[in-house]
Amino acid sequence: MTQRVKFYQTGTFTVGNRLLDEENRTVQATVERSNSLTSGHRACQGCGEALGARYVVDVAMREANNNLVAVNATGCLEVFSTPYPESSWQVPWIHSLFGNAPAVATGVAAAMRAKGREDTRVLAQGGDGGTVDIGFGCLSGMFERNDDILYICYDNEAYMNTGVQRSGRTPPAARTATTPAVGPTKGNAFGQGKNAALIAMAHFIPYVATASVADLHDLEAKVTKAMGMTGARYIHVHVPCPLGWGSKPCDTIKLARLAVETGLFPLFEAEHGEITEVTQIRRKVPVEEYLRPQRRFAHLFGKSADTDALAAIQQMADRNIEKFGLSG
């Protein structure tokens, strides 16, 4: 009887593993990775978005045989990567405006089609503000036309570049510069915001997924799958922001992981409007564990703790677990 050899020391959770065959390693584990977003960029220490962007674009580059054009919305990623006179990008890259990245990408893809160069793949990316708020019209248009673009939203749950203001992805109770933790209801209101991935699914586009910088294997598999398809594809990547969340730079991945493990950020895939895969929670944790290390939620704890808000957030997590079937 032969037993399939497993890697218990590292399982599938670490970036790489010297024991794995080359083809089963992550792109990030290889020395050949393109480092599409290279060193010298000006992202804050421990920036989740910088990490997420390299993770995504490096896979996209591999899948496109390095034949890729990237379009970027205004935002942190754009600002920290391309201040004159230095660019951190190693791929052909264009930034136009805050709200038009999907449309610019449409234009690039159309140009490639016109020139008979469909092998040049197009990736568009933006933050949550640029994607689910100001760029949502263009994004929806790109979706409904089913343009051949992979759009990546790096969701750090607020407008970080402008100094941490509320976005349509800011979670309830979170303190931002425009939802201060003062007054009768502290932080962002409950019952607002939008789930862009679910709205994307409502366009019945070929592929929609959520991913997290905490789960590189899952993220890379999703980008790989998306790159293997044509038409409009959307991946919503959760990227903690130490600055905006008031968390330690070294906690970026831990918080992303806790967001998944609490159920607050469900990981799933959908094709043509139907959910096809859900990543199960591995070690379920209460939301408090996720919220406590973040100063934006500080008012939920301590002397004048808002236990109702805490309970409501736990309920949101539980609802997600139920709705998406996150616990098997």
């Binding site: 497993k6 670490t14 970036v15 010297r18 584990a29 910088a50 990490l51």
Partner: peptide
Amino acid sequence: LFEARRCLSCGNCFECDNCYGVCPDNA
């Protein structure tokens, strides 16, 4: 082999590539 691979390699690099992968600065 299974049992050996349960080792956590405490305090000694076992080349899992995590540091290489998680560095936002490719450093």
